[in-house]
């Protein structure tokens, strides 16, 4: 397992370098005027001055080389437009913590609830529970997030009688954002768990178990559930890691200073250093998530060995 992980990590490193190079080059296509606030009134000297200071007047390979060199030393650089002069690790550190906290709390709510719902739907397949659950899932995924989040905020704030925006001091203001974050996840977890459980119940060995007279509850608990959870487990590390990317809708509505709207903001402001840092961060999270997911799945399911077929669930 160790060799396998190392192997994958090395290959991921190669992937990462390619990603950095691609995004780096893309960013240099951005229009020059976007780097300035007051472009019309600046003299050519001032314009060239700023571009030199941002390192944009050097040839591409030099810029890329410098960037990778700094990266190896653990220096993500300083922000040039988003928060001028502030080291990026500082900015990201704070925000990641905030988004992470919200994400984990939301997961702590949505994972158990989602699983409960999924089990209820699978057990009562075709009956009321299943129909209601299905309706909920389809609804949540169909109506655009931006819409029902807004309604939740307006009416929820009136109901709970708290401020519409999130205040760290007032815990009641955290209820609505966590609720908003959890709702789509519940639907997701329920849907996947139900599908895996239904697939599982169609398998032959379950038919046999029933024929042998094993009690229903034992079948569900020991066979169906356990086996269905295995592919779900693959999703969990990825989900945890991706909570740091925050939800742009929720965070902008509730004034939560997390990572949510950061990417869009820094691209619009043309803060190249920040964009690069974020791309690296998200890519690493993605790769790590997959790797951890596979390892976790391997731990949970003794049948899976690491001569990995790419086609497996």
């Amino acid at each position: 397992m160790l060799r396998y992980s190392l192997n994958r990590l090395l290959r991921s490193l190669l992937t990462l370098i390619i990603i950095i190079a691609v995004v780096f080059s893309l960013l240099r296509l951005m229009p020059i005027e976007g780097y300035f606030d007051n472009f019309d009134k600046m003299s050519p000297t001032q314009i060239q001055n700023k571009l030199t200071l941002m390192g944009l007047n050097d040839p591409l390979y030099k810029q890329l080389g410098r960037f990778i060199w700094r990266l190896i030393h653990g220096d993500l650089g300083t922000s040039t437009r988003y928060r001028v002069g502030v080291p990026i690790t500082g900015i990201l550190g704070k925000k990641i913590l905030i988004s992470f906290r919200f994400g984990i709390l939301a997961m702590a709510v949505s994972l158990p609830l989602g699983m409960l719902l999924g089990v209820a739907m699978a057990r009562g397949k075709g009956k009321l529970a299943d129909k209601l659950g299905n309706a909920y899932i389809v609804f949540i995924q169909a109506v655009p997030n931006a819409v029902y989040f807004l309604f939740i905020q307006l009416y929820g704030a009136m109901l709970i009688r708290c401020s519409m925006l999130y205040k760290a001091s007032d815990l009641r203001t955290a209820i609505l954002p966590i609720l908003s974050l959890a709702l789509p996840s519940i639907a997701g977890y329920a849907m996947w768990l139900r599908r895996y459980m239904v697939d599982e119940t169609n398998k032959d060995y379950i038919k046999l178990a029933r024929a042998k007279g094993v009690p229903e509850s034992v079948i569900w608990r020991r066979h169906v559930f356990r086996n269905s959870v295995v592919p779900m487990v693959q999703l969990i590390p990825g989900s945890i890691l991706m909570t740091i990317s925050g939800s742009i809708y929720v965070e902008s509505l509730y004034s939560i200073p997390g990572m949510g709207g950061l990417l869009v903001d820094v691209i619009k402001r043309q803060d190249n250093n920040m964009v690069q840092a974020l791309v690296i961060l998200y890519s690493i999270m993605g790769i790590l998530g997959l790797l951890l997911g596979d390892i976790l799945m391997g731990i949970v399911d003794p049948r899976i060995s690491f001569v990995k077929k790419e086609g497996s669930r």
Partner: peptide
């Protein structure tokens, strides 16, 4: 692997 790991959001926005 490369394309899969670049978050879709970034590609779309850029």
């Amino acid at each position: 692997n490369v394309l899969n790991n670049i978050p879709t959001t970034i590609v779309l926005i850029l």
